[in-house]
Design a protein around this nucleic acid. Sequence first.
DNA 1: AACAGTCTCAACCGCCTCGAG
DNA 2: TCTCGAGGCGGTTGAGACTGT
Length: 343
Amino acid sequence: MSRKPCCVGEGLKKGAWTTEEDKKLISYIHEHGEGGWRDIPQKAGLKRCGKSCRLRWANYLKPDIKRGEFNYEEEQIIIMLHASRGNKWSVIARHLPKRTDNEIKNYWNTHLKKRLIDQGIDPVTHKPLASNPSPATLKSSDYQDNSSKLRNSEEQLRSGSTSPKSLPPSSSCCNLPEGSSSDETPKNDGSLSSKKRCFKGSSSTSKLLNKVATRASSIGNVLAESMEGTFISSTTLSPSLNDDFSETCQFQMDEFDPFSESSEHTIDHMKEDISMNFDLNNSGYDFSQFLEQFSNNEGEETENIGGYNQDLLMSGVSSTSVDEDNLIPNTTGWSSYLVDDFI
DNA sequence: AACAGTCTCAACCGCCTCGAG
DNA sequence: TCTCGAGGCGGTTGAGACTGT
């Protein structure tokens, strides 16, 4: 059954919006509020499709939209959530306040996806591609050289003094002086592409992405199972989450600490997402227990130095691959943990 | 300086979901 | 229960910006 198009394109304008059109739309919505999109073009004096108006408002004009580049932590959230939810951009957007699904989708397609591929990680499955060049091409000296820079850059990120594109690996690989690129807006000064190319060549980035992918894969599997309801049926949850589950997750809620507001927000939405897919009350599942379990696993995190845990990545059931020698104690946060492991 | 290739992202398209009648 | 329409969503496109030669 074919549907009638939402707007019959008689005299309707398409393409880029002009400032004048933006003003009209903003003015109208400020006065009348959102909704009734089909009628808005006529009432606002716009020769646009209602759908186009809604998109323009939602993706660009809405006052609480955070524009500009994604910061480091936002990237981690996107990667993790993509691992668990796939291309559910609207769901991912709910975990990133003030970001639109369209923006996240674009950022994934133009940046994150390519970077994962470059590092030998399948952006769809978040598992290694058939031939993963990353670990073999990484030099341990690279990690050491970059570790301090990574810390500095991350501090900049936290303080909001750096632009997201000047991510730790990016800035360090380019050997740019501290701060030289941090306050630039690539889109304005044309430096975006050069930075991007630097990023691709970063060995520390390889490591970082592998670690992120590892976590993404882990939390992705857990969340996916949870949301499908198979987690409850296939995992012993009573009286509490079992050890296998803990090891499988490889995910410590403490790591969210540096996210501050966003981490709280993220966790809340994770609860929401999971609760939407199965009845937590009936199952006896307690999300706070879930979080507590993760927190209590501090120190059980395992990684393979110089590469990443292939078993973990490949299987998503990582409990069989634990490197006891590389336990990470006293993780103070997701980001610092990632950085710490470079040392 | 000119051209070709590449990248980015705003915007569009078409399908899906959900609520009202 | 069914139909219809508004809004939402994810995939795709293409103009403009940028880079390399």
